[in-house]
Nucleic acid binder design. Structure first.
Lengths: 155, 155
DNA sequence: GGCATATCGTTATGATCATAACGATATGCG
DNA sequence: CGCATATCGTTATGATCATAACGATATGCC
């Protein structure tokens, strides 16, 4: 028999008619991202680089010098966050910063020679990691996934 | 004229033959997750709940009392992380904890009455948020996406 | 020129995340 | 029983994240 209690422990399972956590895109996306990150860190973690850090370096490699804010937008990071990433990479001398002479608000950021070398070394590794993450999918499915995710991200 | 310098600023754009950041699943997943989270926080942020917090509450609602570690596994969080989430939700009296009498290692966690009420209030909101995130996709595409993401997450 | 507005970078706060090391408790098996 | 092994929760460290508030600098427009 269940005794009446002032405590509020309620341990019954409940059925939510139309709801399941597994049906929420956010939850699926979070887990898939965990998997992708894990695959990447397994391979480039030895270089003490995280996925966002490598994305930052790769963007600079592709685009050349960029202002901090623009760089942030191009790797989907808020100003406060890209700042921290830049500081860490700068401390490791993978990139350098200088003031824009014509617009004193801007901090121009660019890879150092060491940064370029590291990116070039890790580009093929990153490609392998993506392949590993996508291993469960065939070519057609990968293409589908990319299209669907791009449309989601753009809203 | 470019003067020879000991500094290593290199601002040339570079073409990486087989690489594009946009082609890396991890990057796409990160941005899609940002979008999904943003949609959720827009709606349930007023309740001061984050997506992982709500996932935790929803899992407890669905399953009833769970040990902290098992709860963490069921919402894809490491022991150290689920601990912090539980502490925050406990402080707000949305869940309660007690020791398992037969296994002293375990902390059993369950929703309070207030927690149950909040979950029931927010379940339909969460469903709306998922719908909003999925808005760019039609029914068939949503089903595709779910299948693909599930296979990715499971590896 | 001068002022309203916008952009850039910074600071502060708080919540996720992953990882490694650790003590406490259970469990399996000889 | 006794010990090796496994599991649970904790602690510590460091990296992402988002948000809000703020000063400094540019820009647009009168």
């Amino acid at each position: 028999m269940q005794r009446t209690s002032t405590r509020s422990i309620i341990s019954a399972k409940r059925a939510a008619p139309d709801y399941s956590l597994e049906d929420q895109v956010g939850f699926l996306l979070r887990r898939a991202y965990q998997r992708a990150s894990s695959n990447l860190v397994d391979r480039i973690g030895a270089y003490d680089l995280t996925a966002p850090q490598f994305a930052t370096l790769a963007r600079l490699y592709e685009r050349g010098a960029l202002s901090q804010n623009l760089l942030g937008r191009l790797v989907a990071m808020e100003p406060a966050n890209i700042r921290d990433v830049v500081l860490r990479l700068k401390k490791r001398r993978l990139l350098e910063t200088r003031r824009d002479p014509t617009d004193k608000r801007l901090i121009l950021i660019d890879l150092t020679i060491a940064g370029v070398a590291l990116v070039e070394q890790l580009l093929p590794v990153e490609i392998e990691c993506t392949a590993k993450t996508l291993a469960p999918l065939n070519a057609a499915e990968r293409k589908q996934l990319y299209g669907l995710l791009s449309r989601l991200a753009e809203g």
